[in-house]
Design a protein around this nucleic acid. Structure first.
Length: 717
DNA sequence: GCATCGGATTTTTTT
DNA sequence: AATCCGATGC
């Protein structure tokens, strides 16, 4: 097999390991994805395993797709049928198939974060608890933590009054989920574990089916996921896990990197393979990474080495505020692209919290440079998108109460809190979910007339009839047709469009969702809804576009870029203030920074502002403690100068190009111009702001844009 | 039942 | 700054 020739000895040892438990400890950039894919190819191509018997669990759907195509590249058609997916996706598939053994229907929907919060809130209301004393967010976090540790409400034994309260809310929350035929993210894992524990026939069937298990990012599995691996693979023990405890960054989500050592203990005969050589970064970058990690290292500090050479120094750049910081990033990128040394897609800009993306986006927009923003929230978090999805979910699964509640007043149809309260009571008395009751009502209106006031009934009945019609249609109609039918019936377009640009945007988003739905002509509505529920942030990254990427440090895991900027390196942001008091959390911030650093192949830029905007106020900052830990000889940039000289009166902070004397207004309203990307357009306004000429241009191709005339290469025509 | 306004509250990270 | 929530008035 020629692909084996391309591996180093450790990689080959992992790929060709005999059956049985294997633990691969893989440092960043050590080729673990290759090892995983080749292992699968080896199992099939050399050892003759059937793809049907192999399951590989990845961290994102994107990684899963990539793995599938890479296996196919080695084996071709022979590889078809391997089960690849995230824990959540694989579990959802299993649960739908086995729903007869479980207290929900096969067409269950997946409750997103929003639904979960709504449910917790509504439970708090039901129990007459003051939301001031019991914050829904905190309650939900507590519930999720318990679930990640493997508890259903009935398994959890409270040891204090506070815990008893949590148990009570947990219990009601869980009942509400089931009444709506909903599972939350944690449930997908938890119910699968339940199935494997309590339905021996199912356990045997799946353990026999999946004779080889492979798990990526093992350090970020939680206890329930660990149990799943053991339940499925405990018998045949063909478990191949890959991980790096130093890249564990999801503790807050229940992940426990100690699963790595737990694995060694549970499978003492496991073959352990260390992948140490780094093929990604320069030695300078690796040295910085090691320095940041050093305080966490015990007796055997990790050694990262490469034969790529030292490479260039790391730039540490200090700016006046976050706007200047963003501008520094954009200008550096623009210069490097203009110099021909880099392509736009070579750059990534990473930050600790999503809110930081805003200033960056503005800077890119101003410069007229396209960018990509990674994050599912960006699209799926939009109100109009959620509305339409809620309609589809309701049609698919009328019992889905959060979706019903979301949709019932969109657009307003005379059904308010009072009517809904009655509906809920009537439904409860009939032992039905409110949505299900509406179906009954549509079928036999007369039976329900007396239960509601005349006015409420008059508002409710048409909606019930519509719902019945959609439900009927959902059974046979492809997603797009159903969507059109619903949008049409409720007059959604008119509802969200006014004559503003935002209205236009909203409708565009709906059309975008429609295009996504169109891909599910064959697979059907259920598949579409599941996909939508389980998209990860990374899944939203389009790799066919050549432009810089903005993403959180968390979302950067598993990716690599030639040039990496990590911005906002100040105390309170990285490390985040929430971690200040907790040793473990501080360690995780450190690992997060480490993950970010090790994404860089060629060059690393670390920046921080002396002032940041917070809740609309400006605040002075303190540089991140992590910066001080990187040895000076690895660094360059204005911050280093300052640290060396410590001369207070010679501020060396970065300032934008002193274009001051040059800033003459080149354009005026009415000028026709050409932009390299957007083609021809007309200037409708121009002014000088912050020493830059800002122009508003209407392009024939993309409409109105606001640009920095000095950066966007505009030509007069 | 619903639109509007003002005050409170929010931001960690995500399947 | 932006969103959410509750009170108010129609």
């Amino acid at each position: 097999m020629d692909y084996l020739e391309t591996l180093n000895p450790s990689q080959r040892a992992a790929v060709t390991a005999p059956f049985g438990p294997v633990l691969v400890l893989a440092g960043p950039g050590s080729g673990k994805t290759r090892v995983l894919t080749y292992r699968i190819a080896y199992l099939i191509g050399v050892l003759g395993m059937r793809p049907f018997h192999i399951m590989a669990v990845t961290f994102t759907n994107k990684a899963a797709r990539e793995m599938e195509s890479r296996i196919a590249a080695v084996l071709g058609n022979q590889a078809r049928g391997v089960t690849v997916g995230t824990f959540h996706a694989v579990c959802a598939r299993i649960l739908r198939r086995e729903a007869e053994h479980l207290p929900f229907d096969a067409n269950f929907a997946i409750a997103d974060t929003d639904d979960q919060r709504r449910l917790v809130k509504s439970v708090l209301q039901e129990l007459n608890l003051d939301p001031k004393r019991h914050s829904p967010n905190a309650m939900h976090a507590a519930i999720s933590r318990l679930k990640n540790e493997g508890y259903f409400p009935e398994d959890f034994e409270p040891t204090s009054v506070g815990e008893e309260r949590v148990r009570q809310i947990f219990d009601a929350y869980q009942k509400r989920l089931l009444a709506s035929n909903l599972l939350d993210f944690d449930d997908l894992l938890l119910w699968t574990r339940y199935l494997l524990l309590h339905v021996p026939a199912a356990r045997e069937r799946y353990a026999r089916r999946f004779q080889h298990l492979l798990v990526d990012e093992f350090q970020d599995t939680n206890m329930v996921q660990y149990d799943l691996v053991r339940l499925l693979g405990g018998h045949h023990r063909n478990i191949f896990v890959v991980g790096d405890a130093d890249q564990s960054i999801y503790r807050w989500r229940g992940a426990d990197y100690r699963n790595v050592s737990r694995f060694e203990k549970d499978f003492p005969d496991a073959q352990v393979v260390m992948l140490e050589q780094n093929y990604r970064s320069t030695q300078t970058i690796l040295d910085a990474a090691m320095a940041v990690l050093a305080p966490l290292q015990g007796k055997h500090p990790k050694r990262l080495y490469t034969d790529r050479g030292r490479g260039e120094k790391i730039v540490v750049q200090r700016t006046y505020d976050d706007r200047q910081e963003a501008r520094y990033v954009v200008e550096t990128i623009a210069t490097m692209i203009a110099g021909g040394q880099a392509r736009p897609g070579d750059f990534a800009i990473m930050y600790r919290i999503n809110a930081q993306s805003r200033v960056l986006e503005e800077a890119f927009l101003r410069a007229g440079l396209p960018y990509r923003l990674v994050g599912a929230q960006r699209f799926y978090g939009r109100r109009e998108v959620k509305d339409v999805i809620a309609y589809l979910r309701l049609a698919h699964n009328p019992a889905d109460e959060p979706s019903l509640m979301r949709v019932v007043g969109v657009p307003p149809r005379g059904i308010g809190t009072k009517t809904l309260a009655t509906l809920r009571t009537v439904a409860q008395r009939a032992g039905l979910a409110p949505g299900t009751l509406l179906l009954h009502m549509a079928a036999a209106p007369a039976d329900y007339q007396s239960a509601f006031g005349a006015r409420a009934f008059k508002a409710l009945l048409p909606f019930a009839q519509q719902l019945a019609q959609w439900y009927e249609a959902s059974l046979s109609t492809p997603p797009v047709a159903l969507m059109d039918m619903i949008l049409q019936a409720v007059g959604y377009k008119a509802y969200i469009t006014d004559d503003t640009e935002e209205g236009e945007d909203r409708w565009n988003n709906v059309e975008e969702l429609r295009r996504l739905a169109a891909r599910y002509e064959d697979e059907g509505l259920g598949a579409f809804l599941e996909e939508v529920a389980l998209v990860s942030d990374q899944d939203t990254l389009k790799d066919d576009e050549d432009s810089p990427i903005l993403l959180t440090l968390h979302a950067a895991k598993g990716l690599e870029f030639r040039y990496v900027f990590i911005v906002g390196l100040v105390e309170g942001v990285l490390p985040h203030s929430r971690s200040w008091e907790d040793h473990e959390e501080m360690a995780e911030e450190r690992r997060l920074f480490y993950v970010g650093i090790t994404r860089a192949k060629d060059r690393l830029f670390l920046t921080y502002p002396e002032e940041r905007t917070w809740y609309g106020y400006s605040e002075p900052t303190e540089p991140s403690r992590f910066l001080d830990e990187i040895p000076h000889e690895l660094l360059t940039g204005n911050d280093l100068e300052r640290r060396k000289e410590a001369v207070a009166w010679a501020p060396a902070r970065w300032e934008p190009e002193p274009a001051a004397e040059k800033v003459v207004q080149r354009f005026k309203a009415g000028d026709r111009i050409r932009h390299p990307r957007w083609g021809e357009g007309m200037i409708i306004g121009s002014r000088i702001r912050d020493g830059a000429e800002v122009v508003d241009v209407v392009f024939e191709s993309v409409g109105l844009k606001r640009l920095d005339a000095a950066l966007a290469r505009l030509e007069k025509v």
